[in-house]
């Protein structure tokens, strides 16, 4: 999954979508995932990093990652919506 290219992100977890004007706040783990997505990191690489960093099993990490990225999609922060909005 890829994020819209123009998403603005602050170090404090404030996310701004300039094409819609929507803004959100995310917690430190959400911020980390969004940063990795913005850097173009693959899903597997992100899952590996999170599992290592938070000392949890791969199944839980994958489930939480899926929940989070589904939410990003629902909030129209993904590349699919970038194309829809021209």
């Amino acid at each position: 999954m890829k994020l819209k290219k123009n998403i603005a992100l602050s170090d404090t977890g404030f996310v701004f979508d300039p094409s819609t004007g929507d803004s959100f706040t995310v917690n430190p783990i959400g911020l980390e995932i969004i940063k990795h997505l913005k850097d173009g990191m693959s899903k597997d690489a992100i899952l590996g990093l999170l599992a290592e960093q938070y000392e949890t099993d791969a199944v839980n990490v994958e489930k939480d990652y899926a929940d989070f990225t589904n939410m990003l999609h629902k909030l129209k922060l993904t590349e699919a919506h970038e194309k829809a909005q021209g």
């Binding site: 300039p18 094409s19 819609t20 004007g21 021209g86």
Partner: peptide, 23 residues
């Protein structure tokens, strides 16, 4: 272009934000 952020009961924008929308 601007997206209304806060709208009064008359439908007027009481706050808004400039957006990037090429369309």
């Amino acid at each position: 272009p601007m997206r209304k952020q806060y709208v009064t009961d008359k439908g007027k924008a009481w706050s808004g934000i400039s957006i990037d929308d090429p369309v």
